[in-house]
Design a protein around this nucleic acid. Sequence first.
DNA 1: GATGAATGAGCATTCATTCAT
DNA 2: AATGAATGAATGCTCATTCAT
Lengths: 201, 201, 201, 201
Amino acid sequence: MARERDEGKRQVILAEAKRLFAQRGFHDTSVQDIVKGIDLPVGSVYTYFNNKDAIIKAAIEEGWSDFHDSLEAACAAEPSAARRMSLILYRFLPLLFKDVDLVSLFLSEGLRFTSLDDKLERLARLIGAVVNDLAKERGLAVSLSPRQAVTALSVFFLGSMDTIRLSRMAGLPLSEKDVLSFIKLIIETAFSINLEPPEEN
Amino acid sequence: MARERDEGKRQVILAEAKRLFAQRGFHDTSVQDIVKGIDLPVGSVYTYFNNKDAIIKAAIEEGWSDFHDSLEAACAAEPSAARRMSLILYRFLPLLFKDVDLVSLFLSEGLRFTSLDDKLERLARLIGAVVNDLAKERGLAVSLSPRQAVTALSVFFLGSMDTIRLSRMAGLPLSEKDVLSFIKLIIETAFSINLEPPEEN
Amino acid sequence: MARERDEGKRQVILAEAKRLFAQRGFHDTSVQDIVKGIDLPVGSVYTYFNNKDAIIKAAIEEGWSDFHDSLEAACAAEPSAARRMSLILYRFLPLLFKDVDLVSLFLSEGLRFTSLDDKLERLARLIGAVVNDLAKERGLAVSLSPRQAVTALSVFFLGSMDTIRLSRMAGLPLSEKDVLSFIKLIIETAFSINLEPPEEN
Amino acid sequence: MARERDEGKRQVILAEAKRLFAQRGFHDTSVQDIVKGIDLPVGSVYTYFNNKDAIIKAAIEEGWSDFHDSLEAACAAEPSAARRMSLILYRFLPLLFKDVDLVSLFLSEGLRFTSLDDKLERLARLIGAVVNDLAKERGLAVSLSPRQAVTALSVFFLGSMDTIRLSRMAGLPLSEKDVLSFIKLIIETAFSINLEPPEEN
DNA sequence: GATGAATGAGCATTCATTCAT
DNA sequence: AATGAATGAATGCTCATTCAT
């Protein structure tokens, strides 16, 4: 009977907050700043979020979930390890790297507001399985201990994201494309394979 | 930038600020917080620094300089590329990784207060030269374009630092040692070389 | 003042508000708090009350009226002054003292929202008459001036209520029973009388 | 070397706060309201008090302490119970009753911010001793149990204060003088004594 | 130079009340 | 009539920086 809670409004707040938090930092963005750009009263923010912390938490958590869940679904649906690797390389990493705001939040404020180890561990398990299966498919012995594998994934993944972030925010003269082709090179070399883009559907 | 009486006092302030900024974040550490722990009056901070920003700037800039300068000096003094690589691997990276507070500041607040691209570019040049020379020494053709080389260095370096940071601050179950032995493995594999610790002097 | 559909709903709101106002204070109880406990929408409060002030006003005014009106009726129906005094002592004061929430509101917020002097004056008149009649019945000269009588009633009445309130809310180690037997003692001494509980009907 | 903490400023804040809290109530007086009247910046309040609660706490606690301590000292210095009673009646109660703001805070907000039972108990002990000694001096058997004595004191004391408060804030047509002469009457009757004002020194 | 009280703009958050649905 | 999201003024409090002492 009364007005309904408007999910669209929540998304507008979340999007604007994410943009500003990534750009200026969490503490240098006031709640007033957030609503100024989207022409909503301050009070509205607190209809949809418990407090300012909850906004950034939601931005990181939901952004990451979206990415991770669709990656997981795509991997589950694809039996070939090589094609799964292609999916990661050609579809999902570009998706993530395009969302520099999310990457920035993840790296700069993520630690303070969400539990990153969960997210990285889940990702490591998923990618680790692809790597393992790919090695089996290619008849290669896996020469990395599990500990080394996690380290490798962490270094590559965080390093890639940080490189993307710095190339956007500082003046690092590298692009998302450079990082992607570097990762491609590493994988292709390691597995003596040639990864083609997956045919779109 | 004040260069007044008591350099010792300046260092005490800088050390405490670095510790707190890394631990709680820049914005969640007040100038009052900094002096509370070291029993100095607030005013004294402004004898040694122009403002709060200048403190974190100095912490990052000077910490990085110390590291970089001594690395540069050591490299300049060592003609053998292999031994230079050993120095980096056995002496300088451990030094840097031990200083988790500096690594944290560099990654989390560095972007906002200092120019990271300078620092990374300088480092890339230095390490790039070592890599190149090592390839030459080992009679290997360098298959990476300069662009790819910078990307590789950036990914490895930032990724390593971020992994160190997260293993300390989040619960990532990896240690500084894991990261170092992973980097060693990569280099030794890439150059078919066995890197021994440099004899101490 | 609304006198709408559902008188039951109004009473539920009033009861919950009274409880919370007495417990936490008027300002530390939001209108949201009131409806939370009784599972009603906020808006409904404004169907039955013009604003938040009107709720506490009603709680005090109606609570006091109920008490006073039935006291008045009982006194009117009882010709004997001694038995009227017994009624007050054994039936009405216990009734009032049991309703600590009302007593608390009366004393702490009453002043701000209702006119206490009216209530006290009306009560003084009523009890004053009982006292006077009792003195006449006992053949005692009344040695108090009317002014002193009002003072005495005010001191005794407010003091009793405050003692009850403090024994409930602070840790005063006294009970409602102590206050009642103290008042009994005073009256019995003053009038050389023995007040028996009125036979119930 | 720097400016000293100014006790005078603290007292100015405290006095203005006490006045406003008593007049309008704690919640209807903002910290801004307090400083407006005394032309100080908001920040200053927080130099002298941790938060708003601490102001009212100090007003009640310190006001009460002042009253109680000087009463205690005067009683300790006076061996005659009758003269101690005179002191209470002619010097200290008038002092307390004159400070209606303190009385108001004590009764209306005291409960929420300080521990009233402590204060009342200490006072009951002190006055109880005077009453006991006076009874002994007059050769009277004390017919009240200790429990009744505390009740009596609590009722009289709180009742007197509340009567004072209501006569000021609501329109109760009684004055401080009425309450004092009523108390005098009670004591003089109870102890068959004539209490003269103590000669001033 | 040393000190730490002073300052006041700015912040996150609340909440009585309204009113579109 | 019923609902509960919407609203924005107002609140208590912080804190980088200044400057009287």
